[in-house]
């Protein structure tokens, strides 16, 4: 017995002498190493690289030289930046509440529909699967003057004058926002539906017995219990609207972000600075600003909505 144990220890080497806990630790870190390495190389390293680039004047043609905070100073003095900043916030403060309101109302009523429930849900989800480029083309046609544009067609049917939509500096931003909201609805509806389904039916039954009206049930039971879902969607869709790009880029291909930068969001500005002007250092500084805005807004929202 002791001879056998001795022999095993001798032949098994290091591995067999380790305790069960140590072996588990090695396995765990072995598996963790793969995603860890991936994240470091693909995510973290480029992020730090961006921070570094933002304090250089790299332009592809000449090597990067340290310039301190000059890129940031230039950005703050750039009127285009403030225009873009304003646009980005308009996308956020219009897009998030409008899209959440619509998707909640749809989900709230769809939850009660039994007839072809899955089919209707799939229909709402469809835009989410469509590419932004195709969607932008279709919406661009919608916004055309008569006889091509459906919307102007309808307006003229009611005797309302033609609207310029994408060609107007005041109407272009809402016109670009509409398809963006429409495209995200499916996802938000699915999440709201899942949240609604997770509320036990007996909560509603108990409320009916206690005599709460439909409105009171919505206010006092459904919405408070839906809060985790709501927090997730607010943060998620806010980030989405702050990073809006493809909807804007595709709907106005001749002059992305136009007319007169009226629809240009921050991400599009970064894109143009980096890949039209090749001012990589300046673009990196803009990216850092976007990152800080996203971080701040997400933190504020989480703080506001997590505790009451």
């Amino acid at each position: 017995m002791s001879v056998a144990a001795h022999r095993e220890a001798a032949t098994g080497g290091l591995w067999s002498r380790m305790s069960l806990g140590q072996k588990q630790l090695i396995w765990a870190w072995g598996f963790l190493a793969v995603p860890l390495l991936f994240y470091v190389v693909i995510r973290f390293w480029p992020t730090f690289q961006a921070f570094y680039l933002s304090v250089t004047d790299w332009t592809i043609t000449k090597p990067a030289a340290f310039v301190g905070l000059q890129n940031y100073k230039r950005l703050l003095a750039d009127p285009l930046f403030w225009q873009v900043f304003r646009n980005t916030f308009l996308y956020l403060i219009l897009g998030t509440p409008i899209s959440l309101l619509i998707s909640f109302v749809v989900a709230y009523y769809l939850d009660r529909v039994r007839f072809m429930h899955s089919f209707i849900r799939a229909l709402y989800f469809l835009p989410f699967l469509t590419t932004a480029a195709a969607m932008a083309w279709v919406w661009r046609w919608f916004y055309q003057p008569v006889p091509i544009g459906v919307i102007n067609d309808m307006l003229s049917g009611f005797g309302i004058p033609q609207q310029p939509f994408l060609r107007s500096t005041s109407q272009a931003l809402p016109a670009v926002l509409a398809p963006a909201i429409w495209a995200g609805l499916g996802f938000q509806i699915i999440i709201f539906l899942a949240g609604l389904r997770a509320i036990p039916i007996t909560y509603y039954e108990a409320a009916r017995i206690d005599g709460l009206s439909e409105g009171a049930i919505l206010r006092k039971i459904t919405l408070p219990l839906l809060k985790p879902t709501l927090v997730f969607l607010v943060v998620f869709s806010s980030i989405g609207f702050l990073r809006i790009f493809d909807q804007v880029y595709n709907i106005n291909t001749n002059d992305p972000g136009g007319p007169l930068n009226a629809t240009k969001p921050l991400v599009l500005m970064i894109y143009q600075t980096a890949f039209s002007s090749y001012e990589m250092g300046y673009a990196a500084a803009q990216t850092v600003v976007l990152f800080l805005i996203l971080l701040m807004i997400s933190l504020v929202q989480l703080r506001l909505m997590s505790d009451r």
Partner: peptide, 10 residues
């Protein structure tokens, strides 16, 4: 009710 149906948020 079997699952009590008391509201977790109040």
């Amino acid at each position: 009710f079997q699952n009590y149906a008391i509201y977790p948020h109040v």
